[in-house]
């Protein structure tokens, strides 16, 4: 299960790598291990999903990749660089949209391009394209307070996607949405991902979501990777077909058992 680690491997098909990482947090009841000797690889163009209960270390792993946490022990490389240096190539999307309330939808999408130094006319055009891609062309001039939760999350998706990052880190980005909106956003995400072949790390606790979206699932438990699953289904996938599929159901139940046993 532990991927083989060849040190200083460049980016030979690997977009990001966490090697033997321990992440300790100081709490009032003593140190807690958020990650306990975790190793994982994100392959180029791969859709990798991390599942686990809350506190299992999946978001911590994502934050280590984004350079928001510095590993207590072990090595982290993103595009063969330290995570912080790789940030211009990273997109990070949160469960909450983190839109800027004083900017319109269009200007929010432009924001990521703006801070990366895109010229004004170019970023305006790109932002319009991506807003169009997530189906919000007509809402370009609306402020976040004038959009529904699903629309706001779409704007956040467009903002994350527009600078064309090589790696996307997504932390339960759709968990606050209703089932229908989530499904339509899944479709858009997979369509965009298939078109651009970016590498995605997607954190969720929703097993159906994990199976529908992923090439590979890593199950986190108590700060360790408990098991890895390859998801073999052809794309595009349909949630209804997937949930009816025998293999998918077996995977679902196996992960579920892993998560619930103590």
């Amino acid at each position: 299960m532990a991927p083989s680690i060849s040190p200083a491997a460049g980016t030979d098909g690997v977009a990001a790598r966490i090697s033997d990482v321990v992440m300790e947090f100081q709490t009032t009841s003593g140190p807690v291990r958020g990650l306990d000797d975790v190793s994982l690889e994100l392959r180029e163009g791969e859709f990798l999903v991390l599942v686990g209960r809350s506190g299992s270390g999946k978001t911590t792993a994502l934050n280590v990749l984004a350079g928001l946490h510095t590993a207590t022990m072990g090595e982290v490389s993103v595009l063969a660089q330290p995570p912080v240096a790789a940030r211009p190539q990273l997109g990070y999307m949160f469960a909450r949209d983190a839109l800027l309330p004083w900017r319109t939808a269009l200007k929010n999408v432009e924001f990521g391009l703006e801070v990366r130094g895109f010229a004004k006319s170019e970023r305006r055009a790109l932002a319009r394209d991506y807003l169009d891609l997530v189906g919000l062309k007509r809402f370009a001039d609306n402020y976040p307070s004038q959009l529904s939760q699903g629309q706001r999350q779409r704007v956040a998706l467009a903002r994350t996607w527009a600078p064309s990052p090589k790696i996307l880190l997504m932390d339960e980005p759709f968990s606050a949405l209703d089932a229908q909106t989530r499904e339509s956003l899944h479709e858009e995400l997979v369509r965009m991902w298939a078109a651009d072949k970016k590498s995605v790390v997607f954190v969720t606790h929703d097993l159906n979501e994990a199976i529908t979206l992923s090439d590979r699932i890593l199950v986190f438990k108590d700060g360790k990777i408990a098991k890895e699953f390859s998801i073999p289904f052809a794309r595009p996938r349909d949630l209804v077909d997937i949930t009816a599929d025998r293999t998918a159901r077996d995977i679902y139940h196996e992960i579920r058992q892993l998560l619930y046993q103590h």
Binding site: L68, R87, Y92, A98, L100, G112, E114, V115, L169
Partner: peptide, 24 residues
Amino acid sequence: DIRLMVTVMNISKRDMFMKILLPS
């Protein structure tokens, strides 16, 4: 969340002030 987002974007000090702190 906005703070986290702009941290990951490696926003410059100047942009942080003009585009995030001041409007906030």
